[in-house]
Write a protein that binds this DNA or RNA. Structure first.
Length: 548
DNA sequence: TTAGGGTTAG
């Protein structure tokens, strides 16, 4: 059939086109007399946007008669009115290619930001290039705007590539923008990428680093444990006109203290003070105190604390918390409580970290009644336990075989919407349940983990496998092993050797061969294709061969 | 945009 009745959108489309034709004629005649009215422009833009939405494929031919009214500003209003990034891009390109509309830099900025915001970063990059070739070479703020748009959408590499093109467009990028990007990279543990880009930028004439740029890089290196690398940048920064400040020194002191070089960190603190390089503050002192606490050198930690107070530097909540945790881990709860009381007398109210450290300290000292008293006191003070608090309470109860109480806390935790449960917290309870032979409840928790999108790990499965073996439930143990491999959770030597020894004891040597085949990934009867593609699985395969 | 604190098992 060659002829068919027009569909509803087509009728509407024709109606719109005829209305548009009238409006265009009015706008064109108004334009001849003077500036086109905003109201008329807006009406045309609305009509173009609607017509494009109704029939994007015929837009170029359908809108052709109204070319005289299609100014860049009208086209931009129409593009902005469209509901999706894809439709905005479509109309933008139709008006540009079919109607020769020379879009403004503002229109390009809008479109690129919208494409980035919708995750269409490939298209956004193409538009960026098109913008430049259309004569809108970006200036510094424009380049920064695009880089920020990409960075905010999580596309850090695209943002970096854009900033690296500053020289191509002969524009300068402010340190602030570049620093923010480096900080995001460091926050994602991409320290080496941040350093590479920083070096690249330092070599260019279009970027001037500031003290903050160096601080971010120095912090990144300290996080990697590369303190000597951090000191190299520290020595280099003056050559670029950047003076180290208190933050720079604090990062280095903390870097030393975190890598167990506390004496060196303490020495640096003294040198900062004697040489007047900068004014050490509560953060500098707290880093050194924390370093000594981690080495269980509580006497030295308290000496530094006293020295700080002697100099008139007021301890912060972090300082008190560091000491309380240190004394708790050293098994000295009376001193921990004494610091806690001092903290309150000094008008520094405790927070969830204070209580978690105290509860942890009492739990390690096997004083679970005191731990429980503090849990209640925390609630009375209106402080909510967080994932750390739950972890310490649940693990302590499990260590004392108080599994049903631990399950109660786990239930309370899993009902909290603001806490993402981690596998290791479930693992304490699953392991405890397996040890007391409550396998059904342990299996239920495995299901609950999956429901909560908390991926079980090799510890979860190994506890369950051993638990089932110990109760003679060999078929289920093998099933758990297969399930583990199938979901891409690589077993390690503990998993494999535990299961194998249980199978041998149970007189099932044939099953041992089968398990070995699955573990080596050579079991052709098992569909583990998804796990083979998983990077975590393939990365851990050598671990399995070690086990065999 | 940069500095100090608490959880981890088979």
């Amino acid at each position: 059939m060659l002829l068919r009745a027009p569909s509803y959108p087509n009728v509407l489309h024709h109606h719109l086109l005829s209305r548009l034709h009238l409006a265009t004629a009015t706008a064109t005649s108004t334009a001849a007399a003077g500036p086109a009215s905003d109201a008329s422009d807006l009406w045309i833009a609305k009509a173009i946007a609607t017509a494009f939405l109704l029939s994007p494929s015929t837009a170029s031919s359908g809108l052709a008669p109204f070319l005289p009214a299609l100014s860049p500003s009208v086209a931009f209003v129409a593009v902005r009115r469209l509901p999706t990034a894809e439709s905005s891009l479509g109309l933008f390109q139709v008006t540009r290619l079919a109607f020769g509309v020379a879009h403004s830099a503002t229109a390009y900025r809008f479109l690129v930001a919208r494409l980035v915001g919708s995750g269409l970063h490939e298209a956004a990059l193409k538009m960026f290039d098109q913008m430049a070739s259309d004569g809108h070479s970006p200036d510094g703020p424009c380049l920064e705007f695009f880089a920020n748009s990409f960075a905010e959408a999580g596309h850090l590499d695209a943002a970096l590539k854009l900033l690296a093109r500053a020289s191509e467009f002969n524009c300068r990028v402010r340190g602030y923008t570049f620093n923010k990007l480096m900080s995001l990279l460091v926050g994602r543990n991409r320290v080496q990428d941040a350093i590479f880009s920083f070096r690249e930028q330092l070599a260019s004439q279009f970027f001037t680093p500031d003290t903050c740029s160096f601080n971010i890089i120095i912090k990144g290196l300290c996080r990697l444990g590369d303190i000597e690398g951090a000191f190299k940048f520290f020595k280099e920064m003056r050559d670029f006109g950047c003076t180290p400040d208190t933050v720079t020194h604090n990062i280095l002191v903390d870097g030393l203290c975190q890598t167990k070089q506390v004496d060196r960190g303490h020495e640096m603190l003294r040198r900062i003070q004697s040489d007047g390089l900068c004014v050490p503050n509560v953060v500098t002192y707290t880093s050194v105190i924390s370093g000594y606490c981690k080495l269980s050198k509580m006497e030295e930690a308290f000496e530094v604390f006293s020295e700080m107070i002697g100099l008139g530097i007021r301890p912060s909540r972090v300082t008190y918390n560091v000491l309380i945790d240190g004394f708790g881990k050293a098994g000295d709860m009376p001193s921990a409580v004494s610091v806690y009381e001092r903290m309150m007398v000094c008008g520094c109210p405790p927070d969830v970290v204070t209580f978690t450290s105290l509860i942890g300290g009492y739990s390690r000292s096997e004083k679970l009644d005191d731990a429980s008293r503090l849990w209640n006191e925390m609630g009375q003070r209106g402080i909510r336990p967080n994932a750390y608090t739950f972890a310490i309470v649940i693990s302590s109860l499990c260590k004392k075989n108080r599994i049903s109480e631990a399950s109660h806390f786990l239930k309370e935790l899993s009902e909290r919407r603001d806490i993402v449960p981690h596998a290791f917290i479930y693992n304490f309870v699953i392991d405890g349940l397996c040890k007391v032979g409550n396998l059904d409840e342990a299996n239920m928790l495995l299901l609950e983990m999956v429901e909560k999108r908390c991926s079980p790990d090799k510890f979860t499965f190994t506890s369950l496998i051993i638990g089932h073996c110990m109760r003679g439930r060999m078929v289920e143990a093998i099933g758990l092993f297969r399930k583990m491999v199938a979901i891409g959770c690589a077993p390690d030597s503990v998993t494999v050797s535990s299961l194998v020894s249980c199978l041998l004891k149970a007189g099932l040597p044939n099953e041992v061969n089968h398990i070995m085949l699955i573990a080596s990934g050579r079991d052709l009867g098992l569909d583990i294709s998804s796990s083979k593609e998983s990077p975590s699985s393939s990365g851990q395969n050598p671990d399995i061969s070690v086990a065999m």
